[in-house]
């Protein structure tokens, strides 16, 4: 009797403490959850704006519905196709070039024998990633300014004709790749370097005994070791391939009109439609299109990875 009673007491107090625990959890998670609700979930419901003729005087709910008219305007405008192409194309270039250079520089540091040298290079090369795109824009301007910029001075020194950088759109895909690498490799390679440091040295010793050369090491030890990290980073990157780095495309190019054929991306388009033209309909249509395609892309990528090897999937 007594034993049973005690047992019941215990379970009920356990039950009570579980409730208390969960109240604590709720309390702990509340601020972050509430902030997300206000600044992520409520704006999600705002996507209805894309289907409305938004008028400031009538607000989100008072404005009349117009169906897909805003999308029609967006897709009919000459810029829609160009911005989509630029976004996907440039992001693809940026992702691939970063991946290759990040790993290459991580390997370079890994193979260096002097600890001091590694530290020095890493400390210096990471500096650009501490800069905002605004400041990078200033630096790039000092280099590329058509009259008086350093690059054109070098070109004229060697007898070439100076280039009008800010009105030559077809030079910018390469320039943006270089600028993006300049800013990002020092930092981006750290992830891979950290991962490389985790390789057990025994592997190399065994491999050396088997007569493996550097190439074999790379192919059979190092790359397989880096693979999970590469895949996770690429899923994230591909999921965001429809979202361009606004600062890079807007500020580093100085929003120069003549460069739009290659540098106008969805994000700069939305900014222009919203802030310069005040055209809320068109900008929200473009924005919703971007969000939906981005969502589908990240789900699709993850699904494909899951099919190939479930361990590598993000979720």
């Amino acid at each position: 009797m007594a034993g049973v009673k005690r047992n019941r007491l215990k379970t009920s107090s356990l039950h009570a403490s579980k409730i208390v625990d969960n109240i604590h959890f709720a309390f702990l998670a509340l601020p972050a959850a509430a902030l997300l609700f206000v600044f992520a979930y409520i704006p999600m419901s705002g996507i209805v704006i894309a289907f409305k003729h938004f008028r400031v005087t009538e607000g989100v709910f008072g404005s009349p519905w117009v169906g897909f008219k805003n999308f029609e305007f967006f897709f009919k405008s000459a810029d829609a196709w160009r911005t989509i192409r630029n976004t996907l194309g440039m992001n693809f270039l940026l992702i691939v070039s970063s991946l290759i250079c990040n790993i290459a520089f991580a390997l370079l540091c890994y193979y260096l024998r002097s600890r001091r040298a590694i530290k020095t290079y890493q400390t210096i090369t990471i500096i650009p990633s501490f800069l905002s795109w605004v400041v990078v824009g200033y630096l790039v301007y000092a280099l590329l300014k058509p009259s008086g910029g350093i690059i054109n001075q070098i070109i004229t020194f060697f007898g070439g004709t100076p280039v009008k950088w800010y009105s030559e759109p077809y030079k910018w895909p390469a320039l943006l790749v270089i600028i993006n690498l300049w800013r990002g490799v020092g930092y981006g390679s750290l992830f891979y370097f950290a991962s490389l440091m985790g390789i057990e040295h025994d592997y190399f010793e065994v491999a050396a005994l088997e007569g493996a050369n550097r190439w074999h090491e790379l192919r059979y030890i190092i790359l397989p070791h880096l693979l999970p990290l590469i895949i996770i980073m690429q899923i994230l990157a591909i999921g965001n391939i429809f979202r361009a780095d606004f600062g890079l495309f807007f500020n580093v190019t100085r929003d120069a009109g003549p460069l739009y054929p290659t540098t106008d991306v969805i994000d700069t388009y939305i900014y222009r439609a919203l802030m310069k033209l005040g055209d809320i309909g068109m900008s929200s249509a473009a924005g919703l299109f971007q969000s939906v395609v981005g969502f589908v892309l990240i789900l699709a990528t993850n699904l494909i990875v899951k099919r190939i090897d479930a361990d590598y999937a993000l979720f």
């Binding site: 009105s167 009109g257 003549p258 739009y260 054929p261």
Partner: peptide, 9 residues
Amino acid sequence: KEFENWQYE
């Protein structure tokens, strides 16, 4: 805006 300076190219 895109062609604002075409004459100087």
